[in-house]
Write a protein that binds this DNA or RNA. Structure first.
Lengths: 261, 261
DNA sequence: GAGTGGTCTAGACCACGCC
DNA sequence: GCGTGGTCTAGACCACTCA
């Protein structure tokens, strides 16, 4: 029952009560909530108020509605631990791939190349790639899947003069990945800079990743530099936040290092 | 006007139209939207439908409502670029501090120590600190502010036997930061592991960070290891996503794989 | 006091899943 | 066919801001 003296709106009280039941496992993952009509009766509020409370919980990713059946406590999807530490490792024959990372988490990782060609560089990419905003760059767009579900949109951008005429500009799998292909072009890698943002998915991203509106995504930019500190690749990835944990390993020295990192 | 043949619900059509106007700068940041009554008339929908569309946009962080005045396009708050070295928390001149990081972004960074003492270790912390779940550990809790606004909750945990009797267990500022204090106890740092998640703020976090419900936060865990690979510190930080960009710099020595990480 | 956003109601209709 | 979640309406009230 709702407390009319509580300063919080009724729908927030309903949401808070249900949230407590979920967190206390009184409503365990996968369990069906009482029907909206039952909730109306229990809390003595109108249908609209119940719906609004449920909408709040849906926005928080706690429950999912399935019309015709009921509203269910969301099963926590298993997440993939995406480590970047392998980049610092030396020589090895088998490099971690999306497939192997997913297998480590007990899932099936696949990918699909959706576009290879040239495109006008988004300003964030152009800045980091050291080209004029809007100028044409080479782009490879991929979608990554976990157990058949799209979880990641990964776009890689390259300076046109660097990769022109190479296999990178053509569709199809690159043996050893794009980085190996760049090395065959004479590129010597030095280091990379990651920038990570988190935000709500745009409607376009939500549609392509099969997400509810309001879902949280990582927005990740990786700029890779060669031995001359020239940026040779910018990767821009959108990752569903509930299926990825990002991980970095970094040295800690007693004496301060100079410069960032 | 709403298209009744469009399969999308009316409130989503209204939201999409307003979203387009915002992204096209027809409604620039800071500008006041038409009043809800005007929107009702323009789209020929009921008040509730307009409210639901606005609620959707609020959830996306695109607009903010101020009762009594209007609904405004949200000014994009300036974000702080948080390099990975920051969390090492030195206060010496060479280590980046919260104050210096904020100053680099043109803002005032302050912090407040909210609690120093012992607490039962949350399971995620206990795991990483190598102690039994629920056992007592030493904790230092801080809140970080940008221009007076709380933007970060940072809790640092230490094994009890390691820091017992040291200044770390007592309130007050630590000259040189906790890292220097640990070094004075004989700790030799080796490396650290960061784990980054992104999710919606819990109601408690939202209240402490003055966030709207549904706001996105980073959930960051840093485990620092000494030369013997013993975990000596676990930092758990909640950061408002729209005011932080996280950054890492990592060396690349050979061809990595196809994934973004 | 007028206008504003925010909340709530009571009732209706629809598409869908299941029996 | 019935129960389900999801959507929508028309109207009401409240707290707040600002002139």
């Amino acid at each position: 029952m709702i407390n009319r003296n509580d300063p919080r709106p009724a729908y927030q009280q309903v949401a808070a009560t249900l949230r407590d039941r979920i967190h206390s496992d009184e409503l365990a993952p996968g369990v069906k909530l009482p029907s909206t009509q039952e909730l109306e009766a229990e809390f003595a509020v109108s249908p609209t108020t119940v719906q609004r409370a449920l909408q709040t919980l849906k926005g928080e990713g706690l429950v999912v509605g399935r019309v015709g059946t009921g509203v269910y406590v969301r099963e926590q999807p298993r997440a993939v631990l995406l480590a970047s530490t392998y980049l610092t490792q030396g020589e090895g024959e088998a490099w971690p791939t999306w497939t192997s990372v997913a297998r480590d988490a007990g899932m099936a990782g696949t990918q699909e190349v959706t576009q290879v060609g040239t495109a006008s560089a988004p300003s964030a990419v152009a800045n980091r790639l050291g080209v004029d905003g809007g100028s044409e760059v080479v782009v490879r767009r991929r979608t990554m899947f976990l157990d058949g579900q799209p979880v990641q949109l990964a776009d890689s951008y390259y300076p046109r003069d660097l990769v022109e005429g190479s296999p990178i500009t053509r569709p199809g799998r690159l043996p050893g990945g794009t980085q190996a292909a760049l090395e065959r072009l004479g590129v010597r890698f030095k280091d990379a800079e990651d920038e990570v943002r988190a935000r709500v998915a745009t409607p376009d991203e939500a549609a392509r990743l099969h997400l509810a509106t309001g879902a949280v995504v990582f927005d990740l930019l990786r700029t890779t530099f060669d031995a001359n500190d020239r940026p040779v690749e910018v990767q821009h990835a959108i990752l569903t936040a509930d299926r990825h944990i990002l991980s970095w390993r970094l040295p800690v020295t007693a004496a301060p290092t100079s410069g960032p990192m």
